[in-house]
Amino acid sequence: MNSNIEVPKPRPINRSRVSYRTASIVPTPALIDRARLIYFDQKQSSPKVPRPAPIDRSKLRYHSLGTAVPKPACIDRSKLRYRSLGVVVPKPALIDRSKLHYLCSAGVIPKPCPIDRSKVEYSEPQLTALERNIHSPITPGAVNFPCFEITPELEAKADQRIAQYPADQTRSAVLPLLHEVQHHFGFISPESIDWVANKLNLEPMKVVEVVTFYPGFRQKAPGKLHVRVCRTLSCAMGGSYELMDKLCEITKIDRSQEDGHKDTISVSPCGNFSVEYAECLASCGTAPVCLVNDDFHEGITADKAQALLDSYQNA
């Protein structure tokens, strides 16, 4: 090979001055006679191979998972021989864990006692920030609504809404589709977000960001009667805070968990009622006002709260 290009010879190390430190003293290695070494140019010596051609995946045949292969027989472990470095060794004896002592830096500690799972309280699962945004906590109101399901009627309604916008701007239909979902299924569930995203050919994130932005979309089931009380100035002067208190008293709703921004809906334990504060409902002259589901009611002072709920008794 003519690739033995000469490279400058490194200065010899004066090994007599080198002191070797290892656990045990070893003799200093014999000096290498560097004069006899031939240095290779790394670059040239490594052979070049052509880059593999890309695989034409369209021609690959995939085996369908459907073809049945026999289930492998259970391995009889008692017959196994363990081989270490080629020598057959006996199977290790089982460890009697009751005799083990647990070590920690402090010394021997007692074995931990088993957990009594019946006493463990399970909390809401730990969610990541993204999961929290699409999570729908279960409320007592869930019994009032069917589970999300893609029906032909839903598809037809959706197509009708999508047709309202230019063919290349179907993203505009995000709000109308979410309204359809909320109208039929009570709230926006993670599955329905996927459906809307699929329907409009969007990344699900683009639907999630809309759902979490608009106070008009809720992510948990409200009660059968969802009351939205206006809390803005004119209504507050007309007594809407008192109306809210009265409604909560009648329906036994506890609003202490309500956080005013993200989770604004409080549902009664029976699941029939829920309340929420709304901002100005554009009828300030007839304060205080509220919306019950889709019906608007004006001049509902606290003393009329009972009558308002009673009027829905047959609903």
Partner: peptide, 10 residues
């Protein structure tokens, strides 16, 4: 003319 509903944001 089409109607487009908002979602309660001022």
């Amino acid at each position: 003319i089409y109607v487009h509903r908002g979602a309660a944001a001022y």
